[in-house]
Design a protein around this nucleic acid. Structure first.
Lengths: 222, 222
DNA sequence: CTCGTTGTCGTCGAGATGACGATAAGCCCT
DNA sequence: AGGGCTTATCGTCATCTCGACGACAACGAG
């Protein structure tokens, strides 16, 4: 039996919400191929680490975020023979959701790094446009039936801040009153802190932190 | 930059409905490690083929099913460093849904092959119990909001046959009257052929084939 | 103190849901 | 031929959820 060997990499789709729009972390490639083009951050899986570990390490290297602070989830794996012109590469794509972060620093093998709005993207290297589209669709779908939107918020947040996350990710406006009814009605989604804040102006809003429910009943639909 | 190389395999979770229960295709390993243990069918990805191609080829080798006749979809990728005692192996797991098939033949490197009910399984080799559980959960979830259940039926089927698929996959009984209302009400799910059949006894049932809708509105919920 | 802004609660009709009754249309048996 | 069994299909009804939207509450700005 033959054991053909291939290179395995992990690529990251790191999403955040900035200025009311969904943004993705891109790095400018510092080497061939696609020198100077924007790409998703990523790198080779090391012999001694598993796939989630490789994804967490890359995330840490690119953003400085410690593991455990951001949601990290596998999306899909891409392995067309010609997707990397150098050699056969199989890439496992991970989705990361983070609260609004400072502008990222350039990584070790990246010339530059920035947040790009997902509906105004530059040409991406490799097949990264496909990876990104799949990951964004996954994120949009998961907001419906999981409490994942809280991963975009800080530790504590108001219903309106959570609503702006949904509006940014889905790209459509939501009725504040119906949204309030649904998220406060979904058991285990939000846990009241008792505090209020006026940081958004207007009447003080109740402050929540994320609850413990792994899934939303009933789901929020687009 | 180093390019560590790893072996990449594709494993298959082939599901079907037999005798009212969900079954999975298992092969008995004909070589070490785990000689004689049951495992999911699978094999190495060849240098010139992409991942869906490798999955379709393995499926063809194990079941004799031509590509295109069964639903095939990627589930997840597993790459813990010690999941194969021989060497580092990264496995991309695919889910296949097939109508009831004849008892499969043994493959080239499998000593034997059989259908096993998913809630009465033998000990599986490697981490295949995890792969299987993840794939089954994916299948259960997709029945809710896609017309995927028709992949378990033949070309033409009745509402009752489709209901028995749902009951087998979800493992719970469904009200025939409400089920009938929902599936015939979901736009694009079922397309009437005009024919009827009495193969289930009782009053003749209308025969349908699968419609063109890629998603179910409204979804069928468990 | 009034106005603008934002948060929260209520109401209403339309549609979906689950529980279940009623009828239809075959088969098998005598 | 007809009664009884089986399964298919349609209908009813109370309940729930949803989206659209009105009303009011509680802050800051001027």
């Amino acid at each position: 039996m033959s054991h053909p060997v291939l290179a395995v990499t992990v690529d990251l789709v790191v999403l955040t919400v900035r200025e009311g729009a969904l943004h993705v972390l891109l790095v400018e490639r510092g080497e061939e191929p696609f020198l100077g083009r924007w790409a998703l951050p990523g790198g080779f899986v090391r012999p001694d680490e598993d796939l989630p570990g490789a994804a967490a390490r890359e995330l840490e290297e690119e953003t400085g975020l410690a593991r455990g602070l951001v949601h990290l989830e596998q999306v899909a794996t891409y392995g067309a023979p010609d997707r990397d012109p150098r050699q056969r590469v199989v890439t496992v794509c991970y989705l990361a959701l983070a609260p609004d972060l400072p502008v990222p620093r350039a990584g070790t093998d990246a010339a530059d790094a920035r947040w790009a709005p997902v509906d105004d993207l530059p040409d991406l290297a490799f097949d990264h446009d496909v990876l990104l589209a799949d990951a964004v669709e996954r994120a949009r779908a998961k907001l419906e039936y999981t409490p994942l939107a809280t991963a975009f918020c800080g530790e504590e947040f108001t219903v309106a801040e959570l609503r702006r996350v949904y509006e940014a990710v889905w790209g459509l406006p939501l009725d504040p009153r119906n949204f309030h009814r649904k998220v406060t009605g979904a058991a285990g989604f939000l846990e009241p802190t008792g505090a209020t804040t006026t940081r958004d102006g207007g009447r003080p809003a109740a402050v929540f932190r994320r609850g413990t429910a792994p899934t939303l009943h009933p789901p929020l639909l687009r």
